[in-house]
């Protein structure tokens, strides 16, 4: 599969969050502003690419019986590295994402891709898969956070531009998260049906 085609699949037709509907927790929890959304998306993408590469490298060494434990250990290692690096160099992002950074470990997208793709394919292919799936996840987060920030805080770009001053705060509360995701997935289902 060409890179362009995989990219289309990752971003759109096979988007991990909006179509496969996995990795919903961070999608709902961290999309209260676009800065958080992008930060979360890129952190998860970095972990996904690294873990995909390492797992593809080790796919012939890791015994089948203990593969899940081995995958989780490797993923947890990369997540901790990202966590420490963020704390050291981007402390504001680390503070606002908080608990959800270590929780990347249990993001189903990462373990899912390790199990379904990286453990069966070459290093190159797995790296590409990591990039497109990660970008698909990031894309979904950005979409969510733009809608929620605009409606819920009345701003665009992490408070950079104020559009209106009487926002519907409910949109950045948990209820608004579920509502936005529901509507986006509905639109997605409509578009995909049209495309068929």
């Amino acid at each position: 599969m060409s890179f362009g085609k995989s990219l289309k699949a990752g971003l759109f037709t096979d988007n991990p969050t909006l179509v496969q509907m996995i990795g919903l927790c961070p999608t709902l929890a961290t999309t209260t502003s676009i800065v958080n959304g992008i930060g979360m998306g890129l952190s998860a993408t970095a972990v996904l690419i690294c873990s995909n590469i390492v797992i593809a490298l080790l796919r012939k060494i890791i015994p089948n019986k203990v593969r899940i434990a081995a995958f989780i250990t490797i993923i947890a290692g990369f997540v901790t590295m990202i966590d420490l690096l963020l704390q050291a160099f981007i402390p504001s992002l680390s503070a606002s994402l908080g608990l959800y950074i270590p929780l990347i470990v249990v993001n189903c997208i990462i373990l899912g891709r390790a199990e379904a793709f990286a453990s069966k394919n070459t290093v190159g292919q797995s790296a590409v898969d990591g990039i497109v799936m990660g970008l698909g996840f990031t894309f979904a987060l950005i979409l969510m956070s733009i809608v929620r920030e605009l409606l819920g805080a009345g701003t665009i770009g992490g408070g950079a531009v104020t559009i209106f001053s009487q926002p519907a705060t409910i949109m950045i509360l948990p209820a608004g998260g579920f509502l936005t995701l529901g509507c986006i997935i509905a639109v997605m289902q409509k578009l995909l049906k049209k495309g068929e």
Binding site: I62, V66, A70, T73, I74, G77
Partner: peptide
Amino acid sequence: ILCAITLVVSLCLGAVN
């Protein structure tokens, strides 16, 4: 094999830390 993987991961983390 599991121990080896855990060991390598811990060493890498120690370095990053």
